[in-house]
């Protein structure tokens, strides 16, 4: 019995489908509700940071959350381990 079978032997495939879909659609909605400038902002930030630090596309995330009467712009930059800083 393979690993796949081991984890899925007791689960109905329809349940797996529903769980995957729920997560996927929640994520789609989250991205859909983001203002269009966020992607551009993320790319520009990435370009600037890249000048100094060796990072990848995935290391910068930008998101906007709405709470009752304020909006929170969240900026997350994962810096690499020491030794990968560029000499400027």
């Amino acid at each position: 019995m393979g690993l796949f079978d081991y984890f899925h032997a007791n689960r109905k495939s329809a349940d797996v489908a529903k769980e995957r879909l729920s997560i996927l659609i929640a994520r789609d909605h989250f991205h859909r509700n983001q203002p269009s400038f966020l992607a551009a902002l993320q790319n520009e930030l990435l370009e600037v940071i890249k000048k100094y630090v060796d990072i990848d596309q995935d290391d910068v995330t930008v998101s906007l959350d709405r709470e009752e009467d304020c909006e929170i712009l969240e900026l997350n930059i994962a810096l690499p381990e020491k030794g990968r800083y560029k000499e400027v």
Partner: peptide, 16 residues
């Protein structure tokens, strides 16, 4: 197929 758990049900899809 829904009964056998092989297909998403009406309720599942409507909920989503």
């Amino acid at each position: 197929r829904v009964k056998n758990g092989e297909m998403l049900s009406v309720d599942d899809i409507q909920e989503i």
